[in-house]
Design a protein around this nucleic acid. Sequence first.
RNA 1: GGUGAGGUGCCUGAGAGGCCGAAAGGAUCAGUUUGCUAAACUGACGUACGGGAAACUGUACCGAGGGUUCGAAUCCCUCCCUCACCGCCA
Length: 423
Amino acid sequence: MLQVSYIRDNREQVLERLAVKNFKQANLVDEVIQLDDTRRQTQAKLDNTSAEANSAAKQIGELMRSGKKDEAEAIKAKTGVWKEDIKKYSEELAAIEEELYQKLVLLPNLPHSSVPKGLTPEDNEVVLENGAVPALPANALPHWELAAKYKLIDFELGVKITGAGFPVYTNKGAKLQRALINFFIDEAEKAGYREVSVPLMVNEASGFGTGQLPDKEGQMYFVNEDNLYLIPTAEVPITNLYRDVILKADELPVKNCGHTPCFRREAGSYGAHVRGLNRLHQFDKVEIVQVVNPETSYQVLEQMSAHVQSLLQKLGLPYRVLRLCGGDMGFASALTYDMETWSAAQQRWLEVSSVSNFETFQSNRLKLRFRNAEGKTQLAHTLNGSALALPRIVATLLENNQTDQGIKIPEVLVPYTKFEWID
RNA sequence: GGUGAGGUGCCUGAGAGGCCGAAAGGAUCAGUUUGCUAAACUGACGUACGGGAAACUGUACCGAGGGUUCGAAUCCCUCCCUCACCGCCA
């Protein structure tokens, strides 16, 4: 959620930035400013009336105590008008604030100056490519066939016990999951992140804090009986640990990481592109989350991007880094890097990570602040990234590393898998 | 699921219609003292939204929302949450 004061002070820039995100309802900006004007006027009226009523009430108290009943009654007689006005103004104020809020939440975060203009994924900017694409034999198999051949994943069994998009990992497939999770967590800890293990369900306030609600309500599984949402990403619980918190300056940066399963309804996405592990309703992911001083957040974003890249390098996967264009980036993000690995058998790039700086967009909702050098409270910046999401990593690992002898496990993973080959 | 207790500031905790944005203690910060540390003493110390160049000042906030009253942390209603014990259970 953008800050009204910022919108007021930087109207032109806000409009210009929103255009980069292809935001259509630019009129909302002026409506917000207009409403905020009205809000201020109404609050002034309410405050002044309340002040009068308060001091009158105080007087009545004093007069009563000193026995001057008649004078007290005289003042009492006048309070009716104030009372009506206060009721009227506070109802007005509540209505204005509600309307202002409803418009404010429709405004997406402002993209950073480096965000390229554009509408579709084709407009994303390729920042860099790294790693050699393996030359696979003509009979190379896609991962879902490899998974069947080596009995790593049973998709049909998942359908039986739950439904499509809920695979059952078996044998070395299951062990590979565990190995990757531990590898990713260990690497994050080496990079200075504290490991947390968090609930997989969150309440409404948490869903709201990180911006999933109300925008993406339909993408989350909801437990009606208890009013809880299954998390679509560990970002939600981990970032919400700091909801309604005022940190000391020296507590920044806060660096947390955690593994969780992620649950996504992915309503409306079917077809060839979602085959196998490409798109699931439940998958495992290690997430890295930081809360930082605004002055350092873009530096930190680069560090997080470098961390994700180091994982891909260690796994020996060819990858590229995209700077998302205005049209393709998320509602809450100011700058997003996507990391994609090249799936040699499918002959396509698969998104395996997304690293974003949200600046104050989340912290404004979370009321996540820190005390700055002047001792004033200031909104912190939040960032997060996948490091990494498992399924597509597994897909490319299987596909890219297939040989006649079987599938070769990357060296860094062998201490975790305790086997070198899937055969 | 049953029964009971309770939600007050960073924490503990008092307050039971006006003198309460809220005692006291702890924590924290600054200063004095001190060879260092500790201790002691002094002072500061909630958040948000308005107004003001600033000093300062108005309003709101004692789980949330309503109500009673000239006046509510305090009384009434509804809801939410937490804790304890019992039952069930990994």
